[in-house]
Computed example of a mutant assay.
Amino acid sequence: MKEIDIRPATKADFEAMWSIFHTLVANGDSYPFDADTTRETCHDYWFGQGVQSFVAAMGDERLLGMYKLIPNQVGHGAHVANASFMVDPAAQGVGVGRMLGVHCLHEARRAGYLAMQFNFVVSTNLAAVTLWKKLGFTVVGTLPMAYRHAQLGYVDAYVMHQLLSDPMQWPE
């Protein structure tokens, strides 16, 4: 098996990123974007101002997934990171999401973030909820019927959070 490399995303990755994005949002089961979200909106989401995006690639042959890392809020909330992940459906279930999650937590700590928060994890996305719990996140809030699932109708979304270091060691 070829090695999977996680590296910063480049503009040359965008076509493959767009393909993954478009496929996943069309499903209507885990991301808030509409199926007709434009390429430009997708590009801004992954390459906009202040966005750090990374991709998991198998050599130069295939992009398997991606994540973006941003501050969850501005100013006094910027010490908390936020991230968004997408894995190519053909690469799901083999650990790519876990690799991206571990990499993201490392990058967040390296960038000086003190915590990470996911604002909108669809409750029926059991693979994501299970992965984030295994990687140390807890559900800190439930948004009742906040997501309109394409097959299930209105379902809950979770806010998930993790401290990235001991608050007793945080700068003042």
Rank of each mutant, 00 (worst) to 15 (best):
L64Y: 07
N125H: 09
Q169V: 09
D36A: 11
I6D: 02
H149N: 11
V80I: 11
V96L: 01
T41F: 10
M66T: 14
S19L: 10
D36S: 10
M145I: 05
L131A: 04
L24M: 08
Y147H: 14
D29L: 02
L63A: 11
K11L: 13
L126P: 02
V129Y: 09
Q73K: 15
S84W: 06
V129E: 06
R39H: 10
T142K: 14
V94S: 15
Y31M: 05
A16R: 10
M160C: 01
V51A: 08
D44H: 15
Y31E: 03
L135I: 02
E172Q: 14
F47Q: 02
F54R: 05
P8S: 12
Y45G: 08
A57T: 14
A56Q: 06
T38F: 04
F137E: 02
F118W: 10
V129Q: 09
M168T: 15
M58I: 00
I4T: 09
I20Y: 04
Y154K: 15
D36C: 09
Q162M: 08
V87N: 02
Y113Q: 05
E172K: 11
S30R: 09
Q151E: 15
G136Q: 02
W170F: 11
V139G: 03
G95M: 02
V122E: 02
A146S: 12
R98H: 10
D166I: 04
L143W: 12
A115F: 00
K133V: 00
A78I: 00
V94E: 14
N125R: 03
N72S: 06
G50Q: 12
L143C: 07
T10I: 06
S30D: 03
T41R: 11
P171S: 05
I4S: 02
D156L: 14
T10V: 09
L114F: 05
R62M: 12
V25D: 04
Y67A: 06
M99P: 06
T142Q: 15
Y147G: 10
V51F: 06
A157W: 02
K133W: 00
V51K: 04
D60E: 13
P32M: 13
R7V: 06
E107F: 05
T130M: 00
M66Q: 12
R148C: 11
H103W: 06
K68P: 00
L69H: 05
V55C: 08
G50V: 05
R110P: 01
S30G: 15
G141T: 14
F118Y: 11
D34S: 11
E15K: 13
N119K: 13
Y45W: 15
V55N: 07
H22S: 14
E107L: 13
A9Q: 08
R109Y: 00
M168L: 14
H43E: 13
T38I: 03
H103V: 06
V140A: 09
N72A: 07
D36V: 04
F33R: 04
